[in-house]
Computed example of a mutant assay.
Amino acid sequence: MSAQAAITVENLTKTYGSVEALKGISFEVPRGEILGLLGPNGSGKTTTVTLLSTLQRPTAGSARIGGHDVVADAARVRELVSLTGQYASMDDSLTAVENLSVFGRLTGLRGAPLKARIGELIEQFDLHEVGSRRVGALSGGMRRRVDIASALITRPEVLFLDEPTTGLDPRSRAAVWDTVAGLRAEGITVLLTTQYLEEADRLADNIVMLDRGSVVASGTPGVLKQQAGAAVCEMTLVERGDTDRVIERLSGFEIIETPTDASAAHPRLVVRAPEGMATVHGVISRLQDSRIEVVDIGLRQPSLDEVFMQLTEKV
């Protein structure tokens, strides 16, 4: 494990009675990077965050934030980190600025320094139009932006975001993504837990996949996608009646997905493409020779969804 890591986790274990929530997980996060902690409900994501933020003590193993042990030096760790949970922790009856002021006072800021810091956060998160509005009247995405801003009132070195976009609509989710991506530019180390593979793919420098309390894979999004195998050629046919003929004509290609939705107007087939575009060109040639029309055809790289499904099926 690197001495320069912002977060270092070694054989971290947490049990609740007979339930082993974490089974000796290990990973590290370099300073200034975003780690996506990915997994389904019950995989151990939130438990990991509660241990790293000193809200609970591990059963075994160790974890350090900025070189400080989360158990032996918990007070110092709390000075370095901030946490935003799955649900906004603000007072709906107060305005955005008032909420920021409350969080600042709770961390010891007063007077001119507090006012200056609130002004910086209003500017950074583009909250000018909502600063004087009650938080309870804001959209989900805007509430989240205020919530993340409040977590940054003391400029933490490490920020834990526990499923920050749960329940948000696509537009609000995209706005929060932009906010999180901007934290990297500020030099803040972020540990982001999420169930959304697209979210991890877009934001994370590295990903740790958890399943049932264990690390099943880790690496950059690109490296993890390579574990799912070669790219695939996807095609959408014009006529459902052409499906059997296409399967016959593509003899020799590895067809890995055939139409399963009988109600779909245009059936979809997927062929493994180990030679990339050369495979796609071969498929197109066969279809043209047989005068079979397609709505769409193209090459696609494996998704994180496919990686995760493959890995969790093995556990």
Rank of each mutant, 00 (worst) to 15 (best):
residue 241 G to F: 00
residue 17 G to F: 00
residue 212 R to N: 10
residue 152 L to S: 13
residue 139 S to E: 10
residue 87 Y to R: 14
residue 58 P to H: 06
residue 103 F to L: 13
residue 149 A to Q: 05
residue 169 D to F: 05
residue 35 L to R: 08
residue 280 V to M: 14
residue 254 E to D: 12
residue 121 L to K: 00
residue 114 L to G: 13
residue 39 G to V: 03
residue 255 I to C: 03
residue 304 L to W: 00
residue 310 Q to W: 01
residue 114 L to P: 09
residue 302 P to V: 02
residue 33 E to Y: 01
residue 277 M to K: 15
residue 24 G to F: 11
residue 258 T to R: 12
residue 219 G to N: 04
residue 200 A to C: 12
residue 228 A to Q: 00
residue 287 L to A: 10
residue 41 N to E: 10
residue 283 V to G: 01
residue 165 T to W: 01
residue 263 S to Q: 02
residue 68 H to S: 01
residue 212 R to A: 14
residue 211 D to Y: 15
residue 231 A to P: 00
residue 310 Q to A: 08
residue 184 R to G: 08
residue 308 F to S: 02
residue 46 T to Y: 00
residue 155 R to C: 11
residue 213 G to Y: 06
residue 173 R to F: 10
residue 285 S to P: 14
residue 57 R to G: 05
residue 273 A to M: 04
residue 144 R to T: 04
residue 241 G to A: 06
residue 309 M to G: 07
residue 115 K to Y: 12
residue 59 T to F: 00
residue 132 S to E: 15
residue 23 K to R: 15
residue 278 A to G: 09
residue 262 A to V: 15
residue 177 W to L: 13
residue 91 D to S: 07
residue 80 L to D: 09
residue 100 L to V: 09
residue 131 G to R: 15
residue 186 E to F: 05
residue 212 R to S: 14
residue 251 S to V: 09
residue 227 Q to K: 11
residue 202 R to G: 06
residue 218 S to Q: 13
residue 244 D to R: 04
residue 163 E to G: 01
residue 264 A to G: 05
residue 170 P to H: 07
residue 113 P to Y: 12
residue 226 Q to I: 08
residue 299 L to R: 06
residue 140 G to N: 08
residue 39 G to E: 03
residue 273 A to C: 07
residue 268 R to Y: 01
residue 112 A to P: 05
residue 172 S to N: 07
residue 97 V to A: 14
residue 185 A to K: 15
residue 258 T to W: 01
residue 263 S to P: 01
residue 79 E to D: 14
residue 98 E to V: 08
residue 176 V to G: 02
residue 27 F to E: 09
residue 198 E to A: 06
residue 19 V to K: 15
residue 199 E to D: 11
residue 138 L to T: 03
residue 132 S to M: 15
residue 189 T to F: 06
residue 24 G to L: 12
residue 48 T to Y: 08
residue 55 L to R: 08
residue 44 G to V: 03
residue 288 Q to E: 15
residue 285 S to D: 15
residue 41 N to Q: 08
residue 277 M to W: 12
residue 110 R to N: 13
residue 143 R to I: 00
residue 5 A to H: 06
residue 102 V to A: 13
residue 63 A to W: 03
residue 28 E to V: 13
residue 168 L to M: 06
residue 42 G to Q: 04
residue 219 G to C: 06
residue 57 R to C: 06
residue 314 K to N: 07
residue 268 R to C: 04
residue 197 L to M: 08
residue 49 V to F: 08
residue 180 V to A: 11
residue 176 V to D: 02
residue 245 R to H: 05
residue 267 P to I: 04
residue 227 Q to S: 10
residue 244 D to E: 12
residue 248 E to S: 11
residue 15 T to E: 14
residue 46 T to Q: 03
residue 124 Q to H: 12
residue 81 V to L: 12
residue 31 R to Q: 13
